[in-house]
Amino acid sequence: MTSNLQYEIQLRPDFSMLKVELEQGQKVYAEPSAMAAMSPNLKLKAGFKGGAFKTLGRFFGGESMIVNTFSAENGPGEILFAPGHMGDTQHYRLTGGSLYLQRGAYMANSEGVEITGSWQGAKGFFSGEGLVLLKASGNGDVFFNSYGAILEIDVQDDYIVDTGFIVAFEDTLSYNVSVLPGLRGGGFKRLFFSGEGLVCRFSGQGKVWIQTRYVTPYLSWINQYRPQQSK
């Protein structure tokens, strides 16, 4: 049985930071360079985790192959983690099931959780989210982060999310990649000019976390202010 981590997510949502209070002997795992500050009695160990297959799975899921392990020795301690970009951090408690994460969304986890890649095949190919999604499974806590704030949606039947806004979803939801229903049959014109493209249709029962901003449109907006290279 794994004990819950004592945690607090501060400064939400735009510049969030995760604070974890570790008891003596407790461990927390995090992606490299996520650590911002910590008590001096925490020990860091960097390395591969979970064997070659799981390590490669993480790599194809857009994460580092290395996982940092922080353990509290000689008494309790606290540690602060910061996501790589502005945005919120979300906690999820795994109880034997799995949680699927968007590429790069993983931040940290407690003992008892395994992070690996999950081959999505054709669905991944069409969704533009990469062929491999990250999959967190086991018993314990997992923390993930988004670009923008995070909105939790409790899906009861069907729900449609633009592929660029998905952060995470529960394993009980099935999903299909499709063209937005109104666009289907409207010909290519609508597909190209509406600015809406491929969407994920979730069905079943479970939770989806979406982010309130999507990186690509932001990049194209900011690109016009980029200074021109002088000749």
Binding site: S98, S118, F169, T172, L173, S174, G204
Partner: peptide, 25 residues
Amino acid sequence: LDLGGASGRMLFCRTPDGQLTIFSE
């Protein structure tokens, strides 16, 4: 019964009123 989930291999058992669902992969 219903088959679904992210993997497509999760089996859901529902009561007729849909209140209770037990599932396993």
